[in-house]
């Protein structure tokens, strides 16, 4: 029986059942609506804040920070990672440092960032950059070191060397690994940014994290849950719109996947 149904039917039914159950449970008065808002309340908040422009403004502030921080982190990480792969002593120093710093949750940079930059935009950016940078450095180093030596030998016999070898052979060959490193860097940056925004109210911009924290302070649980949902959706969309298509194209064009 079940196998005859189209695939989305069961997930949809489960979702309706869950949300409906949740709605009914809250409305039946068994829990405090203040602490545990019904889905309809969260949706109401979403609609209101969308209309008031509050949500879009906060999302914009957060996305801007994320994109700028990620861009800086990636722009620094790619050459540094390449340098780590190319020069032994840089790998033994910076490469090892990157390995250590990558295990450090980037929210740990927040106190330092606040002391160095103050409660300003630079502090948030710094935390995001730190979240991105080391993952990218390590991924680039790893993928450059893993470029098949055969490609290098073939290119060298054809007269390629120096910058030509890097730009036409090493980097294209390393690209899939570099991209998954960037994806990881993006995920780290996203987490570290949320932590930073919740941790401190940055006067220069009111992001999603700040909105979430404001919800807690105002005891508006519909806002808290709504922002959580938005954070999740933004993360999913970034992957769906940006990373996945590039990755799929890259893999397909090289025959790594049908």
């Amino acid at each position: 029986m079940a196998s005859k149904l189209p695939r989305p039917v069961i997930p949809t039914l489960v979702a309706i059942l869950l949300l409906g159950g949740w709605e009914w449970y809250v409305r039946s008065g068994r829990v405090s609506e203040v602490l545990f808002p019904a889905p309809s309340h969260v949706l109401q908040w979403f609609w209101d804040s969308l209309l008031s422009g509050e949500l879009l403004a906060a999302t914009w502030v957060t996305m801007r920070r994320l994109i700028i921080g990620f861009a800086i982190g990636a722009a620094l990480g790619v050459p540094l990672g390449a340098l780590c792969a190319r020069v032994r002593w840089v790998r033994d120093t910076l490469g090892v440092l990157a390995l250590g710093l990558q295990t450090l949750p980037s929210v740990c940079w927040v106190p330092l960032a606040l002391l160095w930059f103050g409660i300003r935009e630079e502090a948030v950016l710094f935390v995001v950059v730190m979240g991105t940078l080391w993952a990218v450095v390590l991924a680039v180093q790893e993928s450059v070191l893993n470029v098949p030596p055969l490609y290098l030998r073939a290119a060298q016999t054809m007269g390629s060397n120096g910058w030509h070898l890097w730009s036409r052979v090493i980097f294209p060959a390393a690209l899939p690994g570099v991209l998954s490193g960037m994806k990881q860097g993006w995920a780290f940056a996203w987490r570290s940014l949320m932590a930073a925004e919740i941790f401190v109210v940055i006067v220069t911009g009111f992001g999603l994290g700040s909105l979430l924290n404001a919800g807690r302070e105002l005891l508006r649980m519909d806002q808290v849950m709504g922002v959580m949902a938005v954070v999740m959706i933004v993360g999913l969309l970034a992957d769906l719109i940006f990373f996945s298509p590039i990755e799929t194209w890259l893999r397909r064009s090289r025959g790594l996947e049908r």
Binding site: M158, P172, G255
Partner: peptide, 12 residues
């Protein structure tokens, strides 16, 4: 010029 063992063609 060298023709190698496995194909050393560039997949990109």
């Amino acid at each position: 010029l060298v023709m190698f063992q496995q194909d050393a063609l560039f997949p990109w």
